[in-house]
């Protein structure tokens, strides 16, 4: 099996003394071109791994900030194939690995194998699937295996040990530890539950665990990286992009990435 570029990118930062910053942005917001430019700006400002979300009509895991952005992208005519266009355009400009975050039905309709082929051809690293549990993922497990794509499954504070084992077993790249019981959106405190969950995932054999949901400041990034391999920021970046454009989202990425550096 080929080495996961996502796992390597995270490992490099962990070995250097802290951990990775993973940034989420939706494809097609505020436009297809601007979403590519914004993603490039994230990497240029210290984001190690990109998570590009595909806008979907029924995003049950997303809070109001991401919902507003993805609804706007859909209203502006986002098509699934734009996801591959974006991944290709981003990977041509920067070397950071690019994961696609997508709800499951668009992949099913596109065809799981065809989706895997086209994502690999575009230079994508794999998929994060918020509404697909490993129990239902057989077609994706085999397609990703065949093409060599990463697959990131979620683990929740409420997951049993057996389910954590299953998530670790099925995931490649990293396991997405959901910091708190809830949907995406900035929170003033990243739940203490995240620390416990990461420790449990480690006990279950995880070598690469990133924490997401509720992280919006450099201090929170720093705190999460004390115990996890990566910190995922989404809504805060989307808000910055919506309010201040590419310059603002780049500046926030630079600020957040200061959280990945060990204080002098």
């Amino acid at each position: 099996m080929t080495t996961s570029t996502v796992a390597s990118a995270i490992r490099t930062r962990v070995d250097a003394g802290s951990g990775a910053l993973i940034g989420y942005l939706p494809v097609g917001f505020p436009s297809l071109g601007a979403s590519v430019d914004a993603a490039v700006a994230l990497v240029e400002n210290g984001v190690d791994v990109l998570e590009m979300g595909l806008p979907y009509s029924d995003p049950v895991m997303d809070g109001p900030v991401i919902q507003a952005a993805t609804q706007r992208a859909l209203a502006d005519g986002f098509r699934l194939r734009d996801g591959f266009t974006a991944v290709k355009a981003i990977t041509e400009q920067v070397s950071a690995p690019v994961l696609i975050m997508t709800y499951w039905n668009p992949v099913v309709q596109y065809g799981v194998d065809r989706f895997a082929d086209d994502l690999a051809a575009a230079g994508g690293a794999g998929l994060i699937t918020p509404d697909l549990i490993p129990d239902e993922a057989a077609p994706w497990l085999s397609a990703s295996e065949r093409v060599g794509l990463d697959r990131v499954f979620l683990a929740a504070p409420s997951s049993t040990d057996a389910r954590l084992h299953q998530a670790v077993e099925a995931s490649r790249g990293f396991v997405y530890a959901v910091s708190t019981m809830g949907i995406t959106g900035a929170r003033s405190d990243v739940d203490a539950a995240a620390r416990t969950l990461v420790a449990r995932l480690r006990d279950a054999g995880a070598t690469s665990t990133c924490v997401g949901i509720g992280i919006s400041t450099a201090a929170q990034v720093r705190e999460v990286l004390e115990y996890a391999d990566g910190a995922i920021v989404g809504s805060a970046l989307v808000k910055a992009l919506a309010e201040g454009g590419i310059e603002a989202v780049g500046a926030l990425a630079a600020e957040l990435s200061s959280g990945t550096r060990i204080p002098a």
């Binding site: 049950v60 895991m61 499951w104 918020p130 509404d131 697909l132 549990i133 129990d135 239902e136 499954f153 979620l154 683990a155 929740a156 409420s158 997951s159 049993t160 389910r163 998530a167 959901v178 019981m181 809830g182």
Partner: peptide, 12 residues
């Protein structure tokens, strides 16, 4: 059928 939901709901 099945259970196509976020992992956070599986315990419930």
């Amino acid at each position: 059928g099945g259970r196509f939901v976020p992992e956070s709901l599986i315990a419930a």
